[in-house]
């Protein structure tokens, strides 16, 4: 069985996945997507039984997945899943429609409407970009004056989506940590607490958060898998919070990084992910 692992920035994760695939007896090929060209329609000739999409650039990943699926290839994750996860609004809609508890969220299409949404949410609130990751540009807005200043800055951005439109979310009071679950199909491969570093409220490992093994209870276990199904399933990173009022899922990541989680758990995460990849290839 042949597995292609496409990347645009080779990280520890991609090398670990390739090693795990070889150890599982699969023929694994690491492919730098930056050098690929395709004549449309692409023919499924050399990329094997399944492609594990690991590009770090959303748009590169999305267009490549679209092309590969157009050639009849199985891609993990699918184009539909990638599109849902890469847009925070689409993720929020998918979670809410599936009945997964998620923070109260507003879409506003102008700065004036954003002010109205902020009044409904109350301060503090969280302002997030629609796309992007690692906590980049995710901001706690503590009062109306700060919101006004941020909106003026946003109006200067080049990206029309981020320039004029707003994703506003309730600020959830929680311990200085969140929960990251790595899901493959119907299984939780690993689950950790991500503990924010001193002076930082965001819990992204990219921002210096540390990971500690954590076993979800039955309620959270089911909620995590429901969230993964809500976005279409695959290999995903489900992020949850634990305020006093009960668990909330706030994000689902399409190209999950797991170096931090691997440092905290005994499970061989890449081996488990590759096991799922092989299952998909056999379908």
């Amino acid at each position: 069985m042949k597995v292609s692992i496409t990347f645009d920035r080779l990280r520890w994760e991609e090398k670990a996945l390739s090693d795990a695939a070889e150890a599982a007896g699969l023929e694994a090929t690491l492919i730098d997507s930056k050098g690929l060209i395709f004549e449309i329609p692409k023919k499924n000739e050399e990329l094997g039984d399944v492609v594990l999409q690991r590009c770090i650039s959303h748009y590169r990943s999305s267009l490549l997945t679209l092309t590969l699926e157009g050639a009849g290839l199985k891609v993990i994750n699918s184009y539909a899943v990638a599109e849902t996860c890469s847009n925070k609004l689409a993720t929020s809609i998918a979670l809410a429609n599936a009945g997964v508890p998620t923070p109260r969220t507003f879409l506003a299409l102008t700065s004036e409407a954003a002010g109205e949404a902020a009044e409904k949410l109350g301060f503090p609130l969280v302002l997030k970009p629609f796309t992007g990751s690692w906590g980049r540009m995710v901001t706690v807005v503590r009062d109306r004056g700060t919101l006004q200043s941020l909106m003026e800055y946003k109006e200067e951005l080049a990206n029309p989506q981020e320039q004029h439109m707003y994703y506003l979310q309730e600020y959830v009071k929680r311990p200085p940590r969140d929960i990251r679950a790595i899901v493959a199909g119907d299984s939780i491969v690993a689950c950790v607490h991500r503990i924010a570093p001193p002076g930082e409220w965001r819990t992204n490992v990219a921002r210096g958060a540390t990971s500690k093994a954590f076993k979800p209870d039955k309620e959270l276990h089911e909620m995590i898998l429901k969230a993964a199904r809500a976005v279409g399933g695959g290999i995903l990173g489900v992020d949850a919070m634990e305020p006093d009022s009960g668990y909330l899922v706030h994000e689902v990541n399409n190209t999950v990084e797991f170096k931090g989680a691997q440092s905290a758990v005994g499970t061989d995460i890449p081996a488990q992910l590759i096991k799922y990849v092989a299952q998909v290839a056999r379908r």
Binding site: I56, H58, Y59, S133, W134
Partner: peptide, 11 residues
């Protein structure tokens, strides 16, 4: 030189 971090980069 490696590519610089892009606005659409992430998980």
């Amino acid at each position: 030189p490696a590519e610089q971090v892009g606005e659409d980069w992430g998980e």
